[in-house]
Nucleic acid binder design. Structure first.
Lengths: 331, 331
DNA sequence: CTGAAAGCGCTTACAG
DNA sequence: CTGAAAGCGCTTACAG
């Protein structure tokens, strides 16, 4: 590999000048700039990023911490983050934490050792711990990490939209399958749903609302749904709202196994609007998050000091009404 | 941040000695080692990786190039690669290429600029181009990139297993939905399936085998299946094999929409055995790849010179027989 | 406007 | 067995 020295020699200038040309320092005369650029091309010079990092103490790398990359929603987020970082000339260094706080902290330290430009954490730990000792800016995305600024969808508002949708369709016996209530997102989604539903019902009709805590995954939705649906038809819920599309797809499968027609006998709503939501049968009504915007903001916060205000950023959601919801049948 | 210099001062030794302790150089006396380690702990010293990289010209980073991280199969591979790299003390720098050869080459160059320890490429480009000009070892994973050594599942063998499975169940009117035949994996899977099936049929019964080229995604499976199934029941295939689980799930959906029972009236087989394969209804018979082993080998090849032999590595597959396949009904 | 020189933090022959 | 010193490739005040 050729170095600035080689380029300088070839162009007949000093290494300082080469460096200035490369950093677009405008105080270099056009003629010299030309000579240098020419030498760069001839030699196929590529700057040594390690040397630059050592000198400037900054590197065009963003660290990304993900609980589970094989979760399709996180995969989508990761894709958006990578795209935005790439657009801003940054590389993404990704680690997986298996949703384990111990691994998370180890991985974050490994990432920080690389002295990245910033860290985006989809959190697994939200305990009220002291912040990490580092100069590197940190922002949490989707799920809060410690007390760092969070960029996330409007979980409360999105769930409230679901509540309105089901209520206005006429459902009154409704079950909600939440995510882990130890997580902020689990609590917010449940709260948004239950609060709005109770508020709506308060001034009209009687409401039977069951809420069961689950995990965000397929199997959890499947298992809980089987329990909820294994009662007489006039007792079981006419609608099940969930905290994730995975859960909802689990519910869909349980309903299928139990010969309960969706949406005729049971309406189902998911959350996240993963790609798969449009590909199951029937297509899943779900709350869509603007992952592109979330990723954009997260990257932006890290790269511009100004944008790293302490307030959280909440991004609006959109309810996608599809085939898995309908008015309850008049049995 | 404290440096080797601070540690040296604190321990009352030279920086060279500190460095030797840190690199477990055995020629350091235990007493000194103790003193140094103590100083390291007291100061919370963390080595500056950029400086180390500059000096040694090696860095504990592996570059990973993925066509589309939101593809669940790739997500699973990425997860395994990250886990293995992490186990070997390496970070993963990941880029997405959107399956676009132009973006792929740009991204690879960006990655190489970081002088990583090695590059794992899930390829989008297999044209016979000259190799990249770099010292960095490169290996292709799952899909070949240029002419670099490939680590992949046994596509031919896996597809042959599917052919045997369907044939032995008694299917004789069979359709195959391939991936893009411009891709090596698309060709190999199709070839493995068709060759074995033809061979089996050759010495027993008449066989009607239709093969249609598709893409590896959900919609492709859905659309092609609709075409294949929109004929009289005694004309349509009793089994459809596909080149990916996504396609198979598309087929499943098409069959559902057309009121064709799976597996009674139609058997379906996927490929890749993504997590979702066990979560659709009925559970999908699919060819399982050993992604853990593939990832392990890929990382291993990059980190040990010895392992980077030029021969490709083909990893055995396992056919997972599930609910989506059965003997054809005796209509 | 350009060059000479210092220095980022580390590792590694080389002396002693 | 330990230390002094050079040097990885770059950037950046500072002189001129």
């Amino acid at each position: 590999m050729s170095t600035v020295k080689d380029v300088a020699q070839r162009a007949g200038v000093s290494v300082g000048t080469v460096s200035k040309v490369l950093s677009r320092n405008p105080t270099v005369k056009p003629a010299l700039r030309e000579r240098v650029m020419h030498a760069v091309d001839e030699l196929g010079y590529k700057p040594n990023l390690a040397a630059r990092a050592l000198r400037t103490n900054k590197v065009n790398v963003i660290g990304l911490v993900v609980p589970d990359i094989s979760n399709p929603y996180f995969a989508q987020l990761v894709k958006c983050v990578e795209a935005e970082a790439s657009k801003q000339g940054h590389m993404v260094m990704m680690v997986n934490t298996d949703d384990d706080p111990a691994i998370e902290i180890t991985q974050i330290n490994a990432l920080l050792a690389q002295s990245p430009h910033g860290l985006i954490v989809i959190g697994s730990t939200e305990r009220d711990m002291e912040p990490i000792k580092t100069e590197v800016p940190i922002v949490s995305l989707d799920r809060r990490f410690l007390n760092y600024k969070l960029i996330s969808a409007d979980h409360v508002g999105g769930s409230a939209q679901v509540a309105e949708h089901l209520f206005h369709l006429g459902h009154r016996r409704i079950a909600y399958i939440s995510g882990q209530l130890s997580t902020e997102v689990g609590r917010l989604r449940k709260q948004g749903f239950c609060d709005r539903l109770t508020a709506l019902a308060g001034r009209t009709a009687s409401l039977e609302l069951t809420s069961i805590e689950g995990q965000f995954d397929y199997t959890s939705g499947d298992e809980i749904a089987r329990r909820l649906l294994s009662v007489d038809a006039d007792k079981r819920p006419t609608a099940i709202a969930t905290a994730s599309d995975q859960q909802a797809i689990g519910v869909l499968r349980a309903a299928r196994d139990l010969n309960i027609d969706v949406p005729q006998q049971l309406s189902i709503v998911g959350f996240d609007d993963i790609i798969l939501a449009e590909l199951v049968v029937p297509r899943l009504t779900s709350v869509s998050q603007n992952t592109v915007e979330m990723a954009r903001l997260a990257v932006h916060c890290l790269l511009s000091e100004a944008a790293l205000s302490p307030q959280d950023h909440v991004i609006d959601t959109v309810l996608k009404e599809r085939g898995s919801t309908a008015a309850p049948c008049q049995a």
